[in-house]
């Protein structure tokens, strides 16, 4: 797995430069708690070099809004909506209520303090 550090400001540019629909396959987004920060990860694989997995990651505070990559990767909205509900992070232009009910207490996967 090839991990690439990025930041919130550069995220869209980095992924935009990297992602080509005919070459890369967007797999999923993931978030892991690291201390009191959250590591958000974007996984891509490669059609031409099959064993390659590229992971873009960035460390954010839970209340920070993450830019959406919907306009770069068309199918990313499912992964984003899932993380918003399950990990209680904020993503640009994404409402909660896709995975869980809108009135459900969000972030069931976060560690209880």
């Amino acid at each position: 797995m090839n991990k690439v550090m990025t930041s919130i400001e550069n995220l869209k540019k980095d992924i935009g430069d990297f992602y080509k629909p005919e070459l890369h396959h967007f797999m999923v987004m993931n978030a892991v708690e690291v201390g009191d920060q959250i590591e958000v990860q974007w996984f891509f694989s490669d059609y031409a070099h099959p064993c390659d997995t590229t992971c873009f990651y960035t460390l954010v505070r839970p209340e920070t809004e993450i830019p959406s990559i919907k306009d770069i990767v068309a199918s990313a909205w499912v992964a984003e909506a899932e993380l918003v509900d399950l990990m209680n992070i904020k993503v640009e232009n994404t409402q909660k209520g896709f995975v869980l009910e809108p009135d459900f207490e969000s972030g069931p996967l976060r560690k209880k303090k």
Binding site: M27, V28, S75, V78, A79
Partner: peptide, 10 residues
């Protein structure tokens, strides 16, 4: 990540 998850958008 289950297979159908990737297919939802399509």
């Amino acid at each position: 990540k289950a297979p159908t998850f990737s297919n939802v958008a399509a």
